[in-house]
């Protein structure tokens, strides 16, 4: 287990740099809001362009990790592989939770567009809670797998499975922090620019994390090796 934890810490550490981009993009975005005559060649928000570019780039990150997993998914000992470990009903439930968090996120964006701060905050919190529930499910799953004999260093399958789902988990964690920070900033009225856009940016990131899980759920869990 300790290996897994260690890995996650490092993931988190380096991933913070990524979220740094996001935090910065969010902060910079505030100033877009009040520049009424701000010149923009495409008539689009800089922040939103940046976020979509970032998400396009992330596709190649997760693509690489998924490829590594696909290549090594059969490389495990006979008694500790997907057949013994996967608990499809449980993972389906946690996937459903993450899927529904996308609904609550889009409700938050919708509320923010109506300038309805109260509902925006509520939906952000609900989204963060659903995200945390998913994360708790992942922690439970990792500990169960570990107890059943799948250590991080035990096989190629183990290393690539934990790395792929761990990276996704770190992305979810970063998303939860962003949700809560946005919620707090709305509550304290610290967002000087376009509130709706800030919520929308967090939303794009969150949906992307959900979309990645849609792929992982099918490729890793549902399709047998």
């Amino acid at each position: 287990m300790s290996d897994v934890v260690k890995e996650d810490v490092v993931d988190a550490a380096v991933d913070e740099a990524h979220s740094g981009d996001i935090a910065g993009a969010l902060a910079d975005a505030h100033d877009d809001g009040h520049g009424e005559a701000h010149h923009s060649s495409l008539g689009l928000s800089n922040t939103k362009l940046a976020m979509w570019l970032f998400l396009g780039s992330e596709c190649l990150l997760f693509g690489g990790l998924i490829t590594t997993y696909m290549l090594y998914r059969n490389a495990h000992s006979a008694d500790v592989g997907p057949d013994q470990l996967w608990d499809i009903p449980f993972t389906s439930a946690s996937s459903f939770v993450l899927l529904m968090s996308s609904l609550t996120m889009v409700m938050a964006v919708s509320a923010a567009n109506r300038k309805d701060d109260r509902n925006t905050k509520s939906w952000l919190i609900v989204t963060a809670l659903l995200g945390s529930l998913f994360l708790a499910g992942q922690v439970y799953e990792f500990t169960t797998f570990y107890r059943e004999g799948l250590g991080y260093t035990d096989s190629l399958f183990a290393s690539s499975f934990y790395t792929l789902t761990g990276f996704h988990g770190v992305h979810v964690s970063v998303g939860i922090v962003m949700l809560l920070a946005t919620m707090a900033m709305i509550a304290k009225n610290k967002i000087s620019g376009d509130k709706a856009e800030t919520v929308e940016m967090v939303g794009l990131y969150w949906h992307f994390v959900d979309v990645v899980w849609i792929i992982i759920f099918t490729l890793v869990y549902l399709i047998p090796a």
Binding site: V10, C59, G64, T68, L156, S160, T163
Partner: peptide
């Protein structure tokens, strides 16, 4: 934009291999 994440994956795998005993 599109090439950097690929080397990022490779470098992470290498780092996990060397620092945490992964088996990639």
């Amino acid at each position: 934009l599109f090439a950097m994440p690929v080397i990022t994956v490779a470098l992470f795998l290498l780092m996990f291999q060397r620092s945490f005993g992964a088996t990639f």
